[in-house]
Nucleic acid binder design. Structure first.
Lengths: 339, 339
DNA sequence: TGTTATTCTGTGAAGGTTCACAGAAATATT
DNA sequence: AATATTTCTGTGAACCTTCACAGAATAACA
């Protein structure tokens, strides 16, 4: 039965069929008390008979609540952001919120404004920003969001923005210290693009940890998070003539590429070079060899950010703060004691 | 400036400030002709001054169009579905549509109904279903969607559903035939879960291709798409005592796990065993060795499905059909001639 | 100059729901 | 039995737009 836009059924239709007023039907739908058992049954029967579904748009207009959250992502192709988004969706839905997503290719105020224009206008009750890169200041953000409450995931650690972050400094410190503890002294670094907060944090913390041991990286390369670039990075580092016994890599994909390059050069892991990654993607345990890396709790990130955002929506006086989660080191076979 | 829900600005406010009627303001916003240059300027100035943003919810109510598409996904954690979603988002946005996502954990009619209830009610103009698994029949789907036009991505090949699919049979045939062409005769298979359309197609086509050569798989294993399970699969196959010179694997992640297991057993790739994957994830080129696999055009899938869906929304008489895209074989170093 | 076509602007209604209020019916209290 | 309380139900307005229509102003034409 093609059901050719058959005049949408409204409260009034249900009301008429069940012989009550539209308001009573509304009460039934919203589970208000003060509706007698008898009429409630009649109304429910009518709803079923007509296959009535409340018009959520009209409801939003009346209540000024859309029960929809917006999420703005930058780079859904990366593992981190896409995981965060999946977890935000789960958390939102479990609270009765829908999620509308908008990916952004270049993080400029202009692009952000377009998105907010698109998502604003009562379409979303709040915004989750998964834009872990530099580009827009907090003040700009507040202006851009035009009064829509927002929470940023993976913002700059210490930033005065409503946000939920993973302490990547700590994570990177774990990784670097791990190598130091194994006796490594000549350590090289492949970092992520330094317009990413995470890359900065990991990089600076790596530096700081080395410095505390009186060291500095023997050489560095700035990659773009991909396996492809990690591959080039490692080749480049080796070509530079520097020698190193350990390699700190900004994420697991780049680590994979680097491992491939090292293999090509006949360098054994971990015998000749130890290597740590970052993220603990599910595949990392099956790299050759299994990768020592830093695990991030993306699930927690999603859950916490939605909880925070919803509390801001419910009560605009929710104090601004930054929630910090802590990563853990997962030691596998890509690192070993320097002999 | 905390901007404490400062009474939303409406058409009427703008109208008052610029000394015209609300209707004229509406015309300006919607770029209707027949509004004089002069008043248009006045109105635009007022809009800027008040920082007015049209209420999209009210607009939706009036136009009965939300310009939002819904996407129902099953398993965003998998590479395929998450890629499809990203591409659907891009395609939707480029057409001025927002995208609301709903992930589903168990593909039952019940769960689907909940989602449609959540997304229905004029909230979305159409639905993209990325639910590449068995569970709901076409008839059920039509009923469930309650008149909302929908397109299914990666449905069963040949299914009489509005859909856009990749011909995975063809892809799997390419992979299997490639191994046959290299002289392999003892071929094992690690397939995906057989409640996935793709897994079925790849599996059956693998079988058919072997059969055409007078062969059948020496042994098989049904995995769950993860590297972890691919790892177990390979160990299991080897433990079974069967010998094989080539391995057809249902996706790249499982291939990764399998490669790891083979390495552990001292089996060299491709010297001792050739191996093909499926998907061509970006990392596949950096596996050890780089993986021969089948590339799927997820971008095309997203683009085509949105185009199709939008045309259904604009014209309900759009004929139902299934668009089929074709994958390609990417030969790398994990396969070689049998000596 | 008068008539017709074109451009511009405003009014009333509708879209489907919820909120605020008030009236009616049932129940409890004195 | 009369009153106060609670439970139940209905009416009008509001949420903010767009659509359909019609009236006013301007331009084009004879």
């Amino acid at each position: 039965m093609p059901r050719r836009t058959p005049k949408p059924i409204t409260l009034h239709d249900v009301a008429e069929l069940s012989g009550v007023s539209y308001q009573t039907v509304s009460r039934v739908i919203n589970n208000h008390p003060y509706v007698s058992k008898d009429t409630r049954h009649r109304v429910l029967a009518a709803i079923r008979e007509l296959d009535y579904r409340p018009n959520r748009v009209a409801r939003s207009l009346a209540t000024r609540r859309s029960y929809t959250l917006g999420v703005v992502t930058f780079g859904t192709n990366y593992y981190g952001p896409s995981q965060m988004m999946a977890n935000v969706e789960r958390a939102a839905r479990s609270r009765g919120y829908n999620l509308t997503v908008a990916n952004i290719d270049t993080l400029t105020p202009r692009a952000m404004l377009d998105i907010v224009d698109q998502l604003g206008g009562q379409l979303v009750d709040g915004l989750v920003l998964i834009t872990p890169v530099l580009g827009i200041s907090y003040e700009e953000l507040v202006t851009l969001c035009a009064g829509i409450p927002f929470v940023m995931i993976d913002a700059q650690l210490g930033a005065r923005i409503p946000s939920v972050v993973i302490d990547q400094r700590y994570g990177s410190q774990l990784a670097t210290q791990h190598l130091l503890d194994l006796g490594h002294r000549r350590i090289a670094e492949i970092r992520g693009p330094l317009n990413w907060f995470g890359a900065i944090a990991r990089h600076e913390s790596c530096l700081a940890t080395l410095k505390a041991a009186g060291l500095e990286p023997v050489c560095q390369y700035e990659g773009n998070w991909t396996a492809e670039d990690g591959y080039h990075a490692a080749h480049q580092l080796l070509d530079s003539g520097a020698t190193f016994s350990a390699l700190v890599v900004g994420n697991d994909q780049m680590a994979l590429g680097a491992m491939r390059a090292l293999h090509e050069r006949g360098i054994r892991i971990p015998d000749d070079v130890s290597l740590v990654g970052f993220d603990d993607i599910p595949e990392a345990a099956y790299f050759e060899p299994p990768l020592t890396t830093v695990r991030q709790d993306f699930g927690g990130l999603g859950e916490q950010s939605v909880e925070y955002l919803v509390s801001m929506i419910d009560d605009p006086d929710t104090p601004m703060h930054q929630r910090v989660l802590h990563p853990t080191l997962v030691v596998r076979d890509s690192t070993r004691t320097l002999e």
